[in-house]
């Protein structure tokens, strides 16, 4: 990045000025404006990313310890590593909790708020409800994690205190039971995420021509029909953006896992990002952690590319 930004101006300038005509000809080139982001991007993203890939080819304990060439060994080790596969299996559950459930609930909530409650109880009611749904989104994740690790605590957490007062003797150990922890984490993530689709979908609905609804209503279409036939297709672009960004976020999710369970109990809630973190800073397997991070990046890029291609294709089909 940085090198191209510096090398280009000399060769690019004459051709550009000629094409642009006399009006915008002057000293300097537009490439200069890319210099700050170019240099920064090179130093903060490109170089570290390349270094990370290079490190993934070595065995390294970090710090001053020697780097030992290992080739693709870290990657072949990953393929045989149960915990690595488990972490990606858990990523699927993260996608369910961060993408699937919030998007579906968010669609219904946004439509209900916008097109039902907003009209019957005034837009202030709808705006207030929307703000309460969005509140967890602005919370520092460290705070959200703390609140929930305490609420879900087995001994004196709020949920279990409540369950005991209504007479349940042995309430579940939400975060401590390996068969239970993943679903507890997922519940917290749904709570955290739900405001994002609601806010975006409600904004998108303002774009939809109200006459479409009027016409459908006159034709006798009920709320459910209008929801499926008008709301969902009309805000398709926003649904796509939410699904794409949330999927990428789900594949990267880290802080809630670190704070709520630290991957436990018995590794039942480990996710790739947490496994990479543990390899770096707890297990001192830096090369291995770098390999996990590289695989994560590749998986995310592939998933995003597939989704973007799919969206472009269906868009073209609609135009044609």
């Amino acid at each position: 990045m940085a090198t191209t930004a510096q090398a280009r101006p000399a060769s690019a300038r004459p051709a550009r000025s000629r094409r642009r005509g006399v009006s915008i000809r002057e000293r300097g080139s537009y490439w200069w404006y890319l210099l700050p982001i170019g240099v920064g991007f090179g130093a903060i993203v490109i170089v570290p990313f390349v270094m990370n890939v290079v490190v993934s080819l070595f065995k390294w304990k970090g710090g001053r310890s020697p780097l030992r060439w290992y080739g693709l060994g870290n990657y072949t080790d990953l393929l045989a590593d149960q915990e690595f596969w488990l972490s990606f299996r858990n990523s699927v559950f993260m996608i369910i909790a961060i993408v699937v459930i919030p998007t579906l609930i968010g669609l219904v909530l946004a439509a209900v708020l916008f097109d039902y409650l907003g009209r019957k109880f005034g837009s202030r009611t709808a705006a207030f409800l929307r703000a309460t749904y969005y509140l967890p989104q602005i919370l520092p994740i460290a705070v959200a994690g703390f609140i929930w690790s305490w609420i879900l605590d087995s001994r004196n957490g709020s949920i279990n205190s409540f369950l005991r007062t209504i007479g349940i003797e042995n309430p579940p150990d939400w975060l401590g039971d390996p068969s239970q922890a993943l679903s507890s984490v997922m519940a917290m993530l749904v709570w955290l995420q739900i405001g994002y689709p609601v806010v975006i979908f409600m904004a998108a609905l303002q774009r939809v021509d109200p006459e479409l609804y009027e016409a459908a209503e006159l034709d006798g279409a009920g709320w459910g029909r209008r929801f499926l036939a008008i709301t969902v297709p009309q805000i398709r672009p926003e649904i796509f953006i939410v699904v794409l960004t949330a999927t990428v976020g789900a594949l990267k999710v880290f802080a809630p896992i670190l704070i709520l369970t630290a991957g436990g109990p018995e590794g039942s809630t480990v996710v790739p990002s947490y496994y990479a973190y543990r390899s770096f800073f707890e297990l001192s397997k830096v090369g291995y952690g770098s390999a996990i991070a590289t695989v994560m990046s590749i998986v995310i890029f592939i998933v995003a590319a597939i989704m973007l291609t799919w969206q472009r294709r269906t868009d073209n089909e609609r135009v044609a």
């Binding site: 690019a12 490190v55 990267k252 790739p272 770096f280 830096v286 991070a293 990046s297 995310i300 890029f301």
Partner: peptide
Amino acid sequence: IRASGLVLAILLLSTMLPHEALIYPL
């Protein structure tokens, strides 16, 4: 500028990059 499509694509990709892939070198 020339190659602006490529520049944009790289910038967009970087927003998806997991921070784990940068953290140790950083």
